[in-house]
């Protein structure tokens, strides 16, 4: 249903965001590469195709909102905001320094384009629910997108919010679970197994869509369905690979939050270049 040109454009944008991640981290700077790169396609689809979002007017009260509940992976959002021109590109090199505006976790106070303060895990869906309720009261067209991690689903507050959102029948709220199967200290199933994620959301009253989170056309189809679903919230459970696009980091908890060596940086660059050639 989505034309191939759009899919291609968004695949290239996801790749560009991964280039930006490399740009941000360089050699030796610690950052959350794994969980940022697993979301590249999702972020590309939201910011560059789906969301009502005018980068020339990023405070438009009718804009859609993107909330990163898994706030530690904000590097990928910074990349998108830099591509949109909302954050000056020069800021990317100053991430997590007193000289720059890009904090270690999302902070709307410091960073243009960030919509809330998130990163203490489990809170984003609740904040999104509040926004969605407020927009509904004011009959605004804004939709709210909340991206959560799978490890984050251990937080009880997520399920409090899941219950409440279904009870209030909000349909302008869409959750995305970045199901990358790896958290800070190892594979998610070994830390605290959370089986039947899709069935859990369904049992809480949500519309559930299972997709491949790296397949742009599946992402677009799911987001489109979510927009059309009335009377209840939708969650997109996106099967992803932590560290996607960087072979040495894929499925590797060591790259949850770490720095690249010079060799890894060169390897990453050449892998992304190969992908660029393939997408040409």
């Amino acid at each position: 249903m989505t034309d191939t040109a759009t899919v291609k454009k968004l695949e290239r944008m996801a790749l560009q965001l991964r280039f930006d991640l490399l740009d941000i981290l360089g050699v030796g700077k610690v950052g959350h590469l794994g969980g940022s790169s697993s979301m590249a396609e999702i972020v590309a689809c939201l910011y560059f195709h789906v969301m009502r979002y005018d980068p020339k007017n990023p405070k438009d009260p009718d804009r859609d909102r993107f909330l990163l509940s898994k706030g530690h992976c904000v590097l990928i959002q910074y990349a998108a905001l830099a591509e949109l021109g909302v954050v000056p590109r020069a800021e990317l090199k100053k991430v997590k320094t007193l000289a720059g505006c890009l904090q270690g976790h999302p902070d709307m106070d410091r960073t243009p384009g960030i919509e809330a303060v998130t990163g203490s895990l489990g809170m984003g869906l609740s904040i999104g629910l509040g926004m969605a309720l407020g927009f509904r009261l004011d009959r605004r067209p804004s939709r709210v997108y909340v991206v959560m991690g799978d490890g984050e689903l251990s937080e009880g507050q997520i399920w409090e919010a899941a219950m409440a959102a279904a009870a209030f029948k909000v349909d302008n709220l869409t959750g995305v679970v970045d199901l990358n199967h790896v958290q800070a200290t190892g594979p998610t199933r070994e830390i605290f197994d959370i089986p039947e994620i899709a069935r859990k959301w369904a049992a809480f009253g949500w519309e559930v869509l299972n997709i491949d989170g790296h397949d742009v056309s599946q992402i677009l189809t799911a987001l489109n369905k979510a927009q059309k679903t009335k009377g209840r919230p939708t969650v997109i459970v996106a099967e992803t690979v932590k560290g996607k696009g960087f072979s040495f980091a894929e499925n590797n908890a060591a790259f949850h939050n770490s720095a690249l060596t010079a060799d890894q940086y060169r390897q990453a660059l050449s892998e992304l270049e190969a992908r660029r050639t393939a997408l040409a």
């Binding site: 919509e115 904040i127 509040g130 926004m131 309720l133 407020g134 919010a161 409440a164």
Partner: peptide, 20 residues
């Protein structure tokens, strides 16, 4: 909001962001 104070507090944050 039911017996769920944490969600209540953060939902209020979202409502405040929406101008309430």
């Amino acid at each position: 909001m039911g017996i769920a104070e944490q969600n209540m507090a953060a939902t209020a944050a979202g409502l405040a962001f929406a101008g309430k």
